[in-house]
Design a protein around this nucleic acid. Structure first.
Lengths: 145, 145
DNA sequence: CATCTTCACGTAAACTTATGCATAGCAAAG
DNA sequence: CTTTGCTATGCATAAGTTTACGTGAAGATG
């Protein structure tokens, strides 16, 4: 039975990273499409357990991602992708700091990264992974916190 | 008419700095004791206007104080007071950084501060001001954010 | 087994915050 | 002195979140 719960919480992690979840109701709906039927009350408890945060913009974020979130929102200028490679253009001198935060966030799509002065090259396993990572970073860019 | 509003918002600033306000209802009550009669709806709008933040711990904080808030919560070890002087004991090497944040927050009680390596001396106008400042810092210490 | 305990969960209620609508007060224009 | 327009506000209510309570499943224990 604990299996159901932790599976669901894993799913929540994915969903929150990939979509902009603004209410617990939305999260319930997303979970349902992935085969996890539960109620909003349960999601409320999961959110408390997992320490999810709701930003002033009204979006839920993993607390592990908060640091990355702040750095990206403040310092990233542009994100582009070439197949499985994601290039992140940053403010001068900040690339390695962001790359550290990126590594620390331990995203499943990231194989490794290489930081210059104002550019980070991130290597992902496949084009698909690259696409997902690109989407995640771009989503983070939009949030101010 | 704008006078009423800005007076009230000044009062909110004071209240939020000096007490741990957890709900808009509490804020309405506090305002009422200071002669500002208004409803929760109005407070909700004031909070939005002023950019107040509700921390995960459930306490409202001025957004201007957020930076100070984070530093104090992370780095301050102890706060003591001798009359109008407040001594803040910090982690080694962080005193001047915290002092900067303290100055930047522009608290009404602070005349000036003097930072060593792991200690800050803050001078306030009177014993009363010292007491208030002590309370404010101690309040900030309790919050994790 | 029978009983007890614990844990996850749904339901419904309570609580907290945001908002649509109507209005009062004030100011500028006619 | 009206009319028009704008801002701040209250009221009622919607929207969103948390919580008290009860239930059932899965294990321990005797």
């Amino acid at each position: 039975m604990a299996r159901k719960r932790s599976g669901r919480q894993d799913a929540i992690r994915d969903i929150v990273r990939n979509k902009s979840i603004k209410t617990q109701r939305m999260l319930v709906d997303e979970l349902r499409t992935e085969g996890f039927a539960c109620t909003q009350a349960t999601v409320s408890r999961d959110i408390a357990d997992m320490g999810l945060r709701k930003l002033p913009e009204g979006v839920y974020v993993l607390s592990e991602d908060l640091h990355l979130q702040r750095m990206v929102a403040d310092l990233v200028i542009e994100v582009v992708r070439a197949q499985n490679l994601v290039l992140i253009k940053t403010r001068p001198g900040t690339a390695s700091g962001i790359a550290d935060a990126l590594d620390a966030a331990d995203l499943p799509d990231v194989l490794g990264s290489l930081a210059g002065d104002d550019t980070i090259l991130v290597v992902t396993p496949s084009d698909e992974n690259g696409e997902r990572l690109e989407a995640i970073i771009k989503k983070l860019c939009l949030l101010a916190q």
